[in-house]
Design a protein around this nucleic acid. Structure first.
Lengths: 133, 133
DNA sequence: CGCGACACTTGCGTTTTGCAAGTGGAACCG
DNA sequence: CGGTTCCACTTGCAAAACGCAAGTGTCGCG
């Protein structure tokens, strides 16, 4: 059974919006997948080939979790064997200010960080929260 | 030896600013401590008493890590036994837009989240990112 | 001296991570 | 038509991180 969604809910720690956001996104990989989706990547192999080298079992797990959270959607681009392309939902596109804030902070305060042209272009358009669909 | 700093560096995954930010902040607790510091809390017991219930060993570990990362500073407010008050550095205060973006996203997209008055006041003074009109 | 508060530290079982290797089906090659 | 490659995962397993609970040391108070 591919694309398996879990029925269980991990239960939130509090109703604080920051805590709830971290319950969903608070790990070292989830937002990197979101970043790659913003850059136009859409397939498993593309995420796995990124410079950070995400382990493939973690990648598969995070794709399921992010889909469960409504942040991305998967659509089959071929039937046999089933293969999926991933894309951000509106909820996922709304994460752009978070990525922009993280990137801005690192560029200012963490030595030896640099945004490649594709990321710079993404951050340029971060101010507006409602891009044309 | 209290306030022990570690000499070892975990090594960053890439030079991407988002990846580097997550190397430092990419877990479920670090930014909650930063949030509490923004709210004016400064002592170990105050952090431990928060609604999320951070385990005390994790709290102690994160305080050391955040200090190592230059995000917070600890100053002794009594000598024997040594007791420390924690405060954000400039680097830590620069994290406010990240907290604001996380909170804004949750309030809009995660059901049953609510910012208490203290957090609302904090988000009011955020650089300029989230209020969606 | 006993007691509680504060700020941690330690033990230990559970969960998550991450490396590596394996699996299954289509496609290409000869 | 067998063999190899590619793609997208899945599985095994050891190491690390997590989280609960209990313990430690110091001080202040009665």
């Amino acid at each position: 059974m591919p694309r398996a969604s879990r029925p269980s809910k991990p239960a939130r720690r509090s109703s604080c919006p920051i805590s709830c956001a971290l319950d969903i996104l608070g790990d070292r990989w989830s937002l990197l997948i979101v970043r790659d989706l913003f850059r136009g990547l859409s397939r498993y192999g593309e995420f796995a080939a990124g410079p950070e080298g995400i382990p493939t079992n973690i990648l598969a797990d995070r794709l399921v979790r992010l889909e469960d959270a409504g942040i991305l959607t998967s659509t089959a681009y071929q039937q046999n064997p089933p293969r999926y392309a991933y894309a951000l939902s509106a909820k996922g596109r709304a994460l752009k200010p978070i990525l922009a804030a993280l990137a801005g902070w690192s560029l200012q305060h963490v030595p030896r960080t640099s945004a490649d042209p594709a990321l710079q272009a993404l951050l340029q358009t971060a101010g507006a929260a409602s891009p044309p669909a």
